[in-house]
Computed example of a mutant assay.
Amino acid sequence: MTKVLVLYYSSYGHIEQMADAVAEGARAGGAEVDIRRVAETAPSEIVTAAHFKTDTAHAVIEGPDALAGYDAIIVGAPTRYGRMPSQMAAFWDTTGGVWMKGALIGKVGGAFTSTSAQHGGQETTLFSIITNLLHHGMTIVGLDYGFKAQMGVDKVVGGSPYGATTIAGDGSRQPGEEELEGARYQGKRIAETAAKLKG
């Protein structure tokens, strides 16, 4: 069975919800799925003052070597000024040994994100994640236009051909059904692609 890792960082729970939806989609695509998060690196006083969400059902990833055990890795993180946050970057900065072994070459990767505004850097954040995956030799699968809900202009909704997205507003807006469905769609496509490449 194809093994998929959904690896995420979430400050306020939006990306955590998207991670669960991505995992649902990957399972629907026939994969065995693990959801892991990266460690919080912000000082505890910042976490408390900013009211970060600290309760979660998902364990912290064991370490970078765990990545090699998966056929696909789908990475989710919110934006920080148009790029992935330091918490996620800090994890990928520890993967040099995995890179040296070529342990992820030929595996499938994807990315998903959230921003507060429609034009808050979704695509540049996705690319900041995808760049790491490409350096590891991974084949990238985005949110293709087979998912039609990302194409409308009738309402505020996330979505990008580079990966599933959601818009958080001031933090009170939660991922909408179209955005969660986009995450499921991308997760399923990645699982199916990984199964084909695994052959």
Rank of each mutant, 00 (worst) to 15 (best):
Y162T: 04
W92Q: 02
A77T: 06
H135A: 10
P78K: 13
V157Q: 12
I130K: 05
L180T: 04
K101H: 01
E123G: 06
P161H: 00
E62V: 10
G152E: 13
G96H: 01
G152V: 05
Q17E: 14
Q150V: 01
G182S: 12
R189G: 06
M18V: 15
R37S: 12
L126W: 11
S172W: 01
I74A: 02
F91H: 05
F112W: 14
I129G: 09
G109V: 15
G97Q: 00
E177P: 15
L104N: 01
G169N: 02
R36E: 03
F127Q: 15
A191R: 11
L7W: 02
M1N: 10
G69A: 14
T94K: 05
S160F: 04
T125E: 07
F147D: 02
G76I: 10
T54I: 03
V98N: 14
R80M: 01
R36L: 03
I105N: 04
F147M: 05
G187D: 11
H51F: 10
A50L: 15
H51W: 05
I74P: 04
G106H: 09
T113H: 10
G171W: 05
S10E: 13
T41R: 11
Y8Q: 06
T94I: 06
G171C: 09
Q17M: 09
K101G: 02
I167Y: 15
Q150C: 01
A183D: 09
S114Q: 12
D170F: 11
E24N: 12
S128M: 14
K196G: 08
